[in-house]
């Protein structure tokens, strides 16, 4: 394992393995549902759609409903996992994730305010809401970091406490706004609980674009992410521009969280669990950890969404419930393990 060649091979194999798994889960996500479809139907429908043919009802189910939904689930999962990796590296805190830090709530409030301001018009929904979510996410993380700072240092425990406190406060404000504007907010309630029901190709484009932008930074800064684990002072001694690095990473993490939240509401624990599991298996090298976590996040999310659709079929449950059921115990396990150390 020591030779560079071996680790490069291992890295490639791991990523290929995850990508294959993701494709399998995506196909399963399309195939299962209230109306099952076969793999042959899926491939045929996609082929016909690419060919620009008029869609049959069966093809439309696959191409316009299931496919964007599954892709969106994957993108949201990848976004949340990516944000989790970034927050955990930045704060050197294994419990950091967008949900616990309050960033998701901040993005949610920003999105809700944007929705109230621009209404449900198409352009507003597709661009205004993500912009509002991004602003909300940035302001929230700035506030949480500020609250948790003691003399230039971010205390790990204060960070989590501040995050949870801000998260509840912002969620309450969001609920209040929903009550006030309840006539136009019926759909928002379901959205905020964490759901992918409103999936469309436009959303796939918006979230995909934000993820692509946000993923650029961790891929380019992978070495800095590694070095930052040695602590701010040491990273500075090794040539990392620590302040700029933090700004850039916080901005890109907020961007991907905003993308995820503006289409799927508050989905907890994906950003916590997947980077963690990936790190346990693959170690701390961010050149591997960043893409692997994103892939793993996509896999978890597509699978969770599948479960959410079929467990009470034809009734659908918010996918946030599924991730919370899995993630809550996982979080407790991490806490207990941390204390034993």
């Amino acid at each position: 394992m020591h030779a560079t060649a071996t680790s490069a091979t291992r890295r490639r194999l791991t990523l290929v393995g995850l990508a294959v798994t993701l494709v399998a889960v995506v196909i399963a996500g399309i195939a299962f549902g209230a109306v099952p479809v076969s793999v042959a139907d899926i491939l045929g429908a996609i082929q016909r759609a690419l060919g620009g043919a008029e869609r049959s009802a069966a093809d439309a189910l696959i191409v316009d409903l299931r496919l964007p939904r599954v892709l969106l689930a994957g993108l949201v999962g990848a976004s949340l996992a990516l944000a989790g990796v970034l927050y955990q590296a930045l704060f050197k805190n294994p419990l950091a994730d967008p949900y616990i830090l309050g960033v998701s709530s901040g993005a949610g409030l920003g999105a809700t305010l944007a929705l109230v301001a621009v209404g449900t018009a198409y352009a507003g929904r597709a661009f205004g809401v993500p912009a509002g979510a991004f602003t909300g996410a940035l302001l929230t993380i700035a506030l949480v970091v500020r609250l948790a700072s003691r003399g230039g240092r971010v205390e790990p425990t204060s960070l989590l406490l501040a995050g949870v406190a801000i998260s509840y406060t912002l969620a309450a404000v969001t609920s209040f706004i929903m009550v006030v504007f309840r006539s136009s907010m019926a759909s928002v309630v379901f959205w905020m609980m964490g759901g992918l029901t409103s999936a469309s190709w436009e959303y796939v484009g918006v979230v995909g674009g934000m993820l692509a932008l946000g993923a650029l930074v961790p891929l380019l800064y992978a070495r800095e992410l590694d070095i930052m684990l040695l602590g701010d002072e040491r990273a500075g001694q090794l040539g990392v521009n620590v302040e700029r690095f933090k700004l850039v990473v916080l901005a890109s993490a907020s961007l991907v969280v905003a993308g995820a939240v503006s289409v799927s509401g508050l989905i907890g624990f994906v950003g916590l669990m997947t980077p963690h599991m990936t790190r346990l298996v693959l170690g701390p090298d961010h050149r591997l950890l960043v893409p692997a976590s994103a892939l793993a996040g996509a896999i978890v999310m597509v699978a969770a969404d599948l479960v959410a659709r079929i467990v009470l079929a034809p009734v659908e449950i918010p996918v946030g419930i599924v991730t919370a059921v899995l993630g809550g115990p996982f979080f407790v396990w991490l806490l207990v393990r941390g204390e034993r150390r």
Binding site: G231, R234, G283
Partner: peptide, 11 residues
């Protein structure tokens, strides 16, 4: 530095 940094699971 005086104290080696807290090490993570790097080789």
């Amino acid at each position: 530095p005086q104290n080696p940094p807290i090490a993570f699971a790097f080789s």
